[in-house]
Design a protein around this nucleic acid. Structure first.
Length: 429
RNA sequence: GGAGAGAUGGUCGAGUUGGUUUAAGGCACCGGUCUUGAAAACCGGCGUGGAUGUGAGUCCACCCAGGGUUCGAAUCCCUGUCUCUCCGCCA
């Protein structure tokens, strides 16, 4: 959520920043509500102060034998006025909340305006593999190698689900183990959160109310009771410290979590996204940091670097893009995507999204920190980065490392978990 | 699933016949005095959010959450959430 004070103090600057997302927002109504709100607060509080004062004198008056009936009448009338004022205030604040809560984060100063066509590749690693034979699509490869069973996945779960089988399950688990090992080495704390979360958690993450339709709901229609299956571990990790005040010396806090991610991905898949590029469930290791405002820029670079090293360790060709404003998701202020080369699609596909939310999520979740010897609390900054999602890494591995004979070379860093250097098709075993 | 108990400012905890406690007191923590230093002792400070003011400050709200009764609610009433204990069922 954006800071209403910032909008009030400098509406033009906020407007200009939102314009980079191709959003034209008019604040005149909001600013009008804001003035009205503060005027009403002053009036209401004045009345309350009067009521408090008079009411506290009632016992004394009674003791002195004075007649209090007139005073009580007056205070009853005043109480009605206060009640009316409070109702108005409630409406106003709900309007303001809806308006401001619906605004996306401001893109950082160094983020360029416009849609994804303005994304900028900032660096790349490796080369596109050159094949001396006709390379196969990963769906054909994982099927012939017996790594993934699509048909039975659909049979038992429905469209958009698959089953990792045998070496496929080992390969998937090896990837996760590799990521986990690296993060632990870097001093990040391993977390295994619940997979079912409540409405408030979705709100703090910035996913609700806007993207409520994209998650799998468990029960209840009222906000208070609704639960959902998490679409990413980020949703759990941002809420871990919700409504807390952390000490400056405890920052940055560095976490990572493994969870499957469940997404409705409503609408039909495009034909080229067949296979594991887009499913209702995929595995992901997510990194997360809580930092002070001055630490967050460096933290973002650290997270991107970590995600890149994971892909590099696998030896996969990829690039890093800095997203243009409109392509940065609503809650975030700056995002780098790590995109991996999928030969069959002739395209780079996102395997990690690394973002700085600045204080946007912290404000929604009321997550603050206190500086040493400071009385005031401040909102902290939050960052998240996939490290990594496997559902596109595995296709990239089998496609980029496929051989003419139909086999696939296992990246060296994964071999200790799989116990094999080469995966052979069923027919050649 | 059944029965019961509870939820108070970092923590423990008083207050629950409504009004000199409109949140006491202990501990922890911070500052100071004392001390060669530390401990102890003593003195002082010590919740969050909001409105307003240059400022010292003033005022308002918050005792799990949301309603209600009342001139006045931590205290009474209703609804919900969560926690704990016991029983049942079960991986």
């Amino acid at each position: 959520m954006l800071d209403i004070n910032r909008i009030r103090t400098n509406p033009e600057a906020v407007q200009a920043a939102l314009k980079k997302r191709m959003l034209d927002v008019n604040f005149s109504e909001l600013l009008h509500w804001d003035v009205e709100r503060r005027t009403l607060i002053a009036a209401t509080e004045e009345n309350k102060a009067k009521r408090n004062k008079v009411s506290s004198e009632v016992p004394k008056m009674k003791k002195e034998g004075k007649d209090v009936s007139v005073v009580l009448e007056e205070m009853k009338a005043l109480g009605d006025v206060i009640k009316t004022q409070e109702e108005c205030l409630k409406t106003l604040e709900a309007d303001i909340q809806d308006f401001v809560g619906g605004l996306p984060n401001l893109p950082a100063d160094d983020v360029v305006a416009g849609g994804k066509e303005f994304n900028e590749v900032v660096r790349s690693f490796g080369e596109k593999p050159v094949f001396t034979f006709e390379p196969k699509h990963h769906v054909d490869l994982v099927t012939s190698l017996g790594l993934i069973d699509y048909e039975r996945g659909v049979k038992i779960g429905g469209s958009g689900f698959w089953v990792y089988t045998g070496d496929g399950a080992l390969l998937e688990w090896a990837l996760l183990s590799y990521f986990i090992e690296e993060h632990v080495k870097d001093g990040y704390q391993f977390m295994l959160p619940p997979h079912i979360l409540n409405w408030q958690s979705g709100y703090t993450a910035g996913q609700f109310p806007k993207f409520e339709e994209d998650v799998f709901r468990i029960e209840g229609n009222e906000e208070g009771r609704m639960q959902f299956i998490l679409p990413t571990a980020e949703t759990a990790l941002i809420n871990y410290h919700r409504d807390e005040i952390l000490a400056e010396e405890d920052l940055p806090k560095k976490y990572f979590a493994y969870t499957p991610c469940y997404r409705k991905e409503a609408g039909s898949y495009r034909a080229e996204e067949r296979g594991m590029i887009r499913g209702h469930q995929f595995n992901k290791v997510e990194m997360f940091q809580y930092t002070t405002p001055e630490q967050s820029e460096a933290a973002l670079e650290e997270l991107v670097g970590k995600a890149e090293r994971l892909v590099q360790g696998l030896g996969l060709h990829h690039q890093v893009s800095k997203l243009a404003a409109q392509d940065v998701s609503a809650g975030m202020g700056k995002t780098y995507d790590i995109e991996i080369w999928i030969p069959s699609m002739n395209i780079y596909k996102e395997v990690s999204s690394c973002s700085n939310a600045y204080d946007y999520q912290a404000r929604r979740g009321n997550i603050r920190f206190r500086r040493k010897d400071a009385k005031k609390t401040e909102l902290l900054h939050t960052l998240n980065a996939s490290g990594l999602a496997t559902s596109r890494v595995l296709p990239a591995i089998v496609e980029q490392f496929q051989q003419a004979d139909g086999s696939v070379l296992v990246p060296e860093v994964l071999q200790k978990w799989i116990g094999k250097k080469v995966l052979w098709p069923e027919s050649k075993k």
